[in-house]
Design a protein around this nucleic acid. Structure first.
Length: 731
DNA sequence: TCCCACTTTCTTTTT
DNA sequence: GAAAGTGGGA
């Protein structure tokens, strides 16, 4: 195809490799784009190029991004290059775009358009009730573990029947059994979980070829960001979408794949050229983000991975400062270290608070850091962690809204039936539930016929009737009132705010605040989406909006978040904390090479967020599970080329209140220096137990007086053993 | 049915 | 050390 318009910006804004990738609009295209190499820019210009040359209408473009925030930015930047109408373009995350598709077409699969989206807590709650019903011992098969297995099966497009057929171990058999019931329950509730959002479009397309053809026809150009983190379901659905025009452009970096644990398959990107033999490949290897030392340090770690394509990013930036590694005595010291560096950066380099990001492996680490920043009065924002919409009081209100929107949602119905307390206890609910099941009714239907249910007291029936008429009333009001009016009247009527006020504890007051904030969020949503946006849209927005989507990168505050959340972002100064064996890399990952490599990629992702300064820290000891084990320096720190590193140890000063950091001339400490009393055992070691048989040591915890081992037994799962009593044999 | 005190588990990471 | 789960008593 000849290019009708040769835009000036193609030459001014892009380097040669980027421009080639943009111009290759037709056919399958794979763009291997290293960290900071401008892949977002390529995607944006690609869309702009397609539109500017009239190759497609906006509505014929489908662009998958990793976050809603990224989608919004992309849309905005495209419209700045190509002013004009952008409406009709499908740009968003897999989950939000597929939810849109399923609201339109899900009817064919037996879901009505008002389906509820279940988040992880809902999934767990549902699984728990299934486990109780099927009498599955929760100790042996924790709902969490079952959920993870089910989720992996779903994302691998395995049906419950296939899972049952393939099941060997007791765990797999249980998973398959629960999985089948789980799916049935979701459907009965007219609910989809996050995984269903990805797999139902595939079912739809497979069962309804005409629907498939419509969408295949419609989307002339498909663009996918972060392709290295797609799972099987995403992969299959993309191929279905691209089936006709085959103009599919995927962008990714195998070194930045960090979601294997939730089913992402690296082979999707590694095998793209096998799937599309005529595909064109482009490599973006010039990094525009980081100084050379940071880039080299990150590279010196990630080269230790075996599962990767060899490549090396380059930059024409200066070397920059050395990467600083600091050894701290404990996590509070680590917090102080960060304060210290921030104030120094302020003095020396004229920074703003938003120039800094503090990254960590687990959310639990944020607390100490938060305390340190607060004590010093430094503004900060935490991305992730306990999410607003997951707070109890917020979920309670949302549960009401969900039930109003979708009465079949039995899970949320059970949540609110006795919240606030109205005398409908567990026993009553259980009776109605089993009666409902006997008669093939949904819970809400049974509730309206409470008088017929045997064994219910008069008081209980009266309470239920009051509750049912409350719901009926608001269902009727739904069409008359605006979203805001509906929710605020409802909150008034159930007396939630008043109840919190009466309790008067700081905790309940903050709950009241959260409920008010939820009302604010409703107002904000209406302002953004327009008055026509229905309850189901608001609820979908709530389910699929993450912290990172609302994070404001220009607010004047230090950002705290997990390494995972930091993907795709950049900051002048980055701190990566908690670089200790067992924390980063996490102990569970150490025993499995593939997981360890993923941890290493996570380190790579974190390090390459930094533009100018990278501070890495580890602590000699850190509180975990209320205990305080000794730590060993992370292997990742040892893998960094020592010529790129400035190693510093902080010593608690004799004078209280004063701290200093002193350079330490010695080489970095090695594992051997850290000889623990646990010398006999180490993580990853194979052991045998008289009752549980063979297993692998997952974790070693040093308590105050005794040591605890966590061992993953081949046939008994995880057990915690107290060392002096566990008669373990080393294999 | 509800509330309080006690025990247990939990820490990966996220749409 | 917190949050959630368990069990006994009112």
């Amino acid at each position: 195809m000849s290019i009708s318009v040769e835009q000036k910006w193609l030459h001014e804004e892009l380097n040669e490799a980027q421009r080639d990738a943009v111009l290759a609009s037709e056919g399958p295209v794979l763009i291997l784009a290293g960290a900071g190499s401008g892949k977002t820019r390529v995607l944006i210009y690609r869309i702009a190029y397609i539109l500017a040359n009239g190759l497609a209408e906006p509505r014929e473009i489908l662009a998958m991004t990793f976050t809603n925030k990224a989608a919004g930015e992309m849309r905005e930047r495209v419209s700045r290059i190509i002013p004009g109408q952008m409406s009709g373009m499908w740009i968003g995350t897999f989950h939000s775009l597929y939810a849109r598709l399923l609201r339109r077409e899900g009817e064919r699969l037996g879901y009505s358009a008002n389906f509820t989206i279940y988040d992880e807590n809902d999934q767990i709650a549902l699984l728990k009730s299934i486990c109780v019903e099927l009498k599955i011992p929760a100790q042996e098969f924790s709902p969490r573990r079952l959920l993870h297995q089910i989720s992996l099966a779903k994302n691998a497009l395995q049906s419950p029947e296939q899972a049952a057929a393939a099941a060997d171990t007791a765990l797999e058999q249980t998973v398959a059994r629960v999985y089948g019931v789980f799916q049935r329950r979701l459907r009965e509730a007219n609910a989809m979980d996050f995984d269903d959002l990805l797999i139902k479009p595939i079912e739809l397309f497979q069962q309804f070829p005409l629907v498939k053809e419509y969408y295949q026809d419609r989307f002339h150009y498909i663009l996918v960001d972060e392709y290295q983190d797609t799972n099987r379901a995403q992969y299959v659905s993309l191929n279905l979408f691209a089936g006709k025009h085959k103009n599919i452009c995927v962008v990714g970096d195998d070194d930045q794949s960090i979601y294997r644990w939730r089913g992402a398959e690296l082979r999707n990107i590694l095998d793209f050229s096998a799937d599309y033999p005529d595909c064109r490949k482009y490599r973006l290897e010039q990094n525009y983000r980081s100084v050379q030392n940071i880039l080299s340090a990150a590279h010196s770690v990630v080269v230790n991975n075996r599962q990767r394509h060899d490549k090396k990013l380059w930059t024409d930036k200066a070397d920059g400062d050395l990467v600083m590694i600091t050894e701290c005595s404990d996590e509070r010291e680590e917090g102080r270290l960060i304060l210290d560096r921030i104030s120094r950066e302020f003095r020396e380099n004229d920074r703003r608070f938003y120039d800094f990001a503090v990254l960590y492996r687990t959310n639990a680490q944020s607390r100490v850091l938060e305390e340190a920043l607060r004590a010093e009065g430094i503004p900060y924002v935490i991305v992730g962690g306990v999410k607003f919409y997951e707070r109890k009081e917020v979920k309670d209100v949302l549960a009401y809204l969900r039930v109003l929107c979708n009465p079949n949602d039995g899970l949320n119905l059970k949540r609110i039936i006795n919240t606030p307390v109205r005398g409908i206890g567990d026993a009553t609910v259980a009776k109605i539930e089993s009666w409902a099941r006997e008669h093939g009714l949904a819970l809400h239907q049974a509730l309206s016929r409470a008088a017929e249910v045997p064994g219910l007291g008069k008081r209980a029936v009266a309470s239920i009737n009051r509750f049912v008429s409350l719901l009926k009333k608001y269902q009727a009001l739904q069409s008359e009132l605006s979203l805001q009016e509906l929710s605020s009247t409802l909150i008034d009527e159930i007396g939630l705010l008043q109840q919190y006020k009466e309790e008067g504890t700081p905790e309940s007051l903050s709950r009241a605040d959260n409920v008010r904030e939820l009302l604010l969020a409703v107002a904000e949503f209406t302002a953004m989406a327009g008055p026509d946006a229905g309850l189901e849209h608001f609820l979908q927005h709530v389910s699929l909006t993450t912290d990172i989507d609302v994070w404001d990168d220009r607010s004047n505050a230090v950002t705290l978040m997990t390494l995972h959340s930091a993907k795709g972002l950049e900051f002048p100064v980055v701190f990566i904390t908690g670089l200790e064996e067992g924390l980063f890399p996490l102990s569970r990952s150490i025993i499995e090479p593939a997981s360890l490599e993923e941890e290493r990629r996570l380190f790579y992702v974190g390090a390459t967020r930094a533009q100018e300064k990278l501070y890495l820290s580890w602590t000699r000891t850190r509180r975990r599970y209320g205990e305080r084990p000794g730590n060993v320096i992370s292997r990742f720190l040892k893998e960094i080329d020592s010529r790129l590193v400035d190693y510093v140890t902080t010593h608690p000063s004799a004078m209280p209140g004063r701290r200093r950091a002193e350079p330490c001339d010695q080489d970095m400490p090695s594992y051997e220096d850290e000889s623990q009393e646990t010398a006999e055992f180490h993580i990853g070691m194979r052991v045998a137990h008289p009752t549980f048989g063979p297993g692998t040591v997952l974790k070693i915890q040093s308590g105050y007086s005794q040591l605890k081992l966590i061992v993953l037994f081949d046939s008994y799962g995880e057990k915690r053993l107290v060392l002096p009593y566990a008669k373990l044999q080393i294999l």
